[in-house]
């Protein structure tokens, strides 16, 4: 209670009212597909978690765009996530320790929290040449993944690379990069996207904290609350598709009218994600709203199967 009180005081000191915070929790609860009865419970998870679950975040073949996307989370801001909601035991980008001390943190966390930590993986794993294409501190991604991941309570593959291989696995893929599941044969919860939307990671974590289990998944390991429908089925430009009103050139009158982007290569009909509803950066926009066709960045092998990007499917 005491903690909860100070949480709201802090929010208010930052100019965020209790009301706007509850509004966010309502949106998050809806994104997760839970009933409105859960809204106060979702708020509770941020205000006063019984314990901060340990998280080990591994970086493999990636660009850190997924970590960056999480840094853009608002309500909860990332300092709340780090200081009050989760215990980030290892994360190369944000941790203060370096070198041997950083590696010690990884080993200590895995040992201390064996079977209890959440492992988040960003990036894909090189498998050719005994994993020789990707190393951290002299050890291959493959060795690290095989050692750490089987000891986690659950593993979340965050971003298309960790889920399905992503850009490093694009043809000709000399390093033999694969997603976590294919590389080491464990089942993972997959939140694809390039980058993924942080609200889908937050939603998954809140589900875990709230219900003590991971959300319902589809046959590719993706949470149904976020990846149950295609972009096309949720697209605000859908009526233009039905009416046969298409953009055929960027910079045209049709583009200015916000017509359907199908003929300039939109992959919305083949892509499962909640971008049109959740949007990015606190609901600011998403690619189709910015006039750009969906490139299918959350689908397996999108770099090979969705290209050439600007040609009709």
């Amino acid at each position: 209670m005491e903690k909860e009180k100070s949480f709201y005081e802090r929010l208010e000191a930052r100019g965020i009212s209790r009301r706007s915070f509850m509004k966010y929790c309502t949106a998050l609860t809806a994104t997760m597909g839970l009933s409105a009865a859960y809204v106060p419970k979702v708020a509770e998870v941020f205000a006063a978690p019984a314990q901060r679950p340990p998280v080990v975040w591994l970086h493999f073949g990636e660009c850190t765009g997924c970590s960056e996307s999480l840094l853009r989370s608002q309500y909860p801001y990332v300092d709340d996530l780090v200081l009050e909601v989760l215990s980030i035991e290892y994360h190369e980008t944000i941790m203060a320790a370096a070198g041997h001390q950083a590696e010690e943190n990884l080993h200590a966390a895995v040992k201390k929290h064996a079977g209890k930590f959440i492992c988040v993986v960003e990036g894909s794993i090189a498998t050719a040449y005994d994993g020789g294409y990707g190393k951290v501190a002299g050890r291959t991604f493959l060795e690290i993944a095989k050692e750490v991941i089987p000891q986690a309570a659950a593993t979340i593959a965050y971003g298309t690379c960790a889920c399905f291989g992503g850009v490093p696995a694009a043809k000709p893929n000399p390093g033999g990069y694969k997603g976590v599941k294919d590389a080491i044969g464990v089942s993972t919860l997959n939140i694809p996207g390039c980058p993924p939307n942080p609200i889908n990671l937050v939603g998954t974590v809140v589900n875990y904290l709230l219900l003590g289990k991971l959300p319902a998944l589809d046959d590719m390991g993706r949470p149904l609350f976020a990846f149950g429908k295609t972009i096309h089925d949720q697209c605000p430009r859908r009526s233009h598709f039905e009416n046969g009103e298409f953009v055929e050139k960027f910079g045209s009158e049709e583009a200015a009218l916000g017509y359907c982007l199908y003929k300039v290569g939109c992959r919305g009909p083949e892509t499962y994600n909640n971008c049109p509803v959740a949007k990015f950066n606190d609901g600011t926009s998403w690619p189709v709203e910015a006039g750009h066709p969906c490139i299918g960045c959350s689908e397996p092998d999108f770099w090979d199967t969705m290209t050439p990007f600007y040609e009709e499917m």
Binding site: G65, E68, S69, R72, C194, P195, F250, G251, A255, A256, G258, F280, N281, T284, S285, W286, P287, V288, E289, A290, G291, H292, I295, Y310
Partner: peptide
């Protein structure tokens, strides 16, 4: 449309005409 990886730059210009 988003950050990181904004997606409105194309060869020839920009797409975010409605914004």
């Amino acid at each position: 449309g988003k950050n990181p990886h904004p997606q409105s730059l194309v060869v020839g210009g920009i797409t975010c005409v409605a914004d």
